[in-house]
């Protein structure tokens, strides 16, 4: 006997089951919902190209997470290229949705997070939102565990520094 409705091994079921969580992961990496949805759609399209991954749900989910991180990084790279004329520290204003709803203390952290290097941001999001272990992050980002540890450490220092700058800017 099989394992039930195709849902457990079907990309359509993966889509139904994990789309929201993956969009939430993506929105932490690319900032706005529309881009996040595009990133996740692209990730599923990429998964559909690799049926061998589709047939193993556990591999497929890990594949999707990696794909979201990589696609989000590409999206940021494209966006930064398009905004090449802008000052490098200009991360854009927070979205109206975010300004209206996100508490000030959270908003400052999110703005500070946007000022980090993409790899630092990815490590922090995977560590503190996705709750992945260092080994899992290393596998997802194709880097060593040592690099994960050092990147996370430097990212926290940079985040703290950015937070102080933001608080200083707002006081002025």
């Amino acid at each position: 006997m099989g394992t039930g409705v195709e849902a457990s091994v079907d990309i359509t079921e993966l889509y139904a089951a994990h789309r929201l969580a993956l969009v939430r992961l993506a929105v932490l990496l690319v900032d706005d919902l529309a881009s996040a949805e595009d990133v996740v759609q692209d990730a599923f399209a990429a998964l559909a190209r690799r049926p061998e991954a589709v047939r193993d749900p556990s591999r497929a989910l890990a594949y999707l997470r990696v794909s979201v991180v990589n696609t989000a990084r590409s999206a940021l790279r494209r966006r930064r290229t398009a905004r090449a004329y802008a000052p490098p520290r200009d991360t854009g204003p927070p979205s109206p949705e975010e300004s209206a709803v996100l508490a000030e203390e959270h908003r400052e952290v999110i703005v500070a997070l946007r000022r980090l290097a993409p790899r630092q941001r990815e490590v922090l999001v995977l560590r503190y939102w996705s709750n992945l272990t260092e080994a899992e992050i290393a596998a997802a980002l194709d880097i060593s565990q040592g690099t994960v540890k050092s990147t996370a450490s430097r990212a926290l220092v940079a985040l703290q520094k950015s937070l102080r700058e933001i608080e200083g800017e707002e006081e002025r």
Partner: peptide, 9 residues
């Protein structure tokens, strides 16, 4: 902050 931002979606 990450949880709060994510759950806005």
């Amino acid at each position: 902050a990450l949880a709060a931002r994510a759950e806005l979606v």
